[in-house]
């Protein structure tokens, strides 16, 4: 068996995430009027139409791709699996993601600054429902039951977490943070260490390989919460396959309300964050 740790994946999936390959999103934009914004369906550029508006919604990339390929049974949404090539499906998905909340950069557009930009909003004058508060965000960040919460993968000020240390998030543009929370695949990061592993005893593991030796791999097992850093003997492994995309869950758009997302952003930024700043 060969272990591909450290080898960048060369599959069509690698380019799925919007922003990771903005050329792909441009291809999708070209395809969109032919297949999607036809009468009675999704409007021009995903705006208003008879079918659900696509622009400005949160989307899980995996679920989105599934809908494009298989359609939604018992609705007007047809399946495009037979009509579009694999690459065209990826392109349409990339485009739809690019018009979702906190859109990733268009081709040729300037990359949004990772530094916080001052926004002239008088937070005091906004209703509470539009303002995120750090203390509430901390509670949400450190939530550790069920699917919600960031702790376990992310730390503040410590580098030994599964995901990035988020203490630098204070310095980042809240829009970029929101995009990274809702669309983890949008950022062009090295995903080469994300694998699914089947052990000979039948156990299935989704994990990030940290290091590999002659006899074992050491990985963060993400199939459990809190995640576990485990040493897996190679002789116990039946199958090991790379997984495209980010290991971060893609359903935070469904798990949190807008208000809660604002609170989490406020905690990450160490200050109150208001809804208008995200536009």
């Amino acid at each position: 068996m060969r272990f591909m740790v450290g080898v960048v994946l060369a599959t069509a999936w690698a380019g799925l995430a919007a922003g990771q390959n903005s050329g792909l999103a441009s291809e999708g934009r070209a395809l969109f009027p032919r297949y999607c914004s036809i009468p009675y369906c999704h409007g021009s550029e995903g705006g208003e139409g008879r079918a659900p508006t696509l622009r400005g919604r949160t989307r899980d990339p995996g679920a989105l791709r599934d809908i494009v390929v298989n359609g939604i049974p018992d609705t007007s949404m047809p399946d495009f699996g037979e009509r579009l090539t694999e690459n065209e499906v990826d392109a349409v998905v990339a485009y739809v993601l690019s018009i979702s909340i906190a859109p990733p950069p268009e081709a040729g557009a300037s990359v949004p600054s990772r530094e916080a930009k001052p926004v002239s909003v008088d937070i005091e004058s906004l209703p509470a429902s539009l303002v995120g508060v750090p203390e509430r965000g901390a509670t949400l960040f450190f939530e550790a039951s069920g699917e919600r919460g960031c702790t376990g993968c992310h730390h503040m000020g410590r580098g030994d977490g599964v995901g990035p240390d988020l203490s630098a998030a204070k310095e980042q543009d809240p829009r970029a943070l929101l995009r990274d929370i809702l669309f983890p695949d949008a950022e062009d990061a090295d995903r080469s260490a994300f694998f699914t592993i089947e052990l000979k005893d039948g156990e299935h593991i989704r994990g990030i390989v940290q290091e590999e030796s002659e006899t074992a791999v050491r990985l963060h097992d993400l199939s459990t919460r809190p995640p576990v850093l485990r040493r897996i003997a190679k002789e116990s492994i039946a199958k090991m396959e790379p997984v495209p995309g980010s290991p971060m869950p893609k359903n935070f758009g469904e798990l949190y309300t807008w208000k809660e997302l604002l609170d989490i952003l406020a905690f990450l930024q160490g200050r109150a964050v208001s809804y208008p700043e995200l536009h």
Binding site: M156, R218, P226, L229
Partner: peptide, 20 residues
Amino acid sequence: LDATTGEVAWKVNVEDSAYF
């Protein structure tokens, strides 16, 4: 830890020590 070698077999963070 592996009792024979002392190597880390697994490691898990129960919850964030500083916050909780």
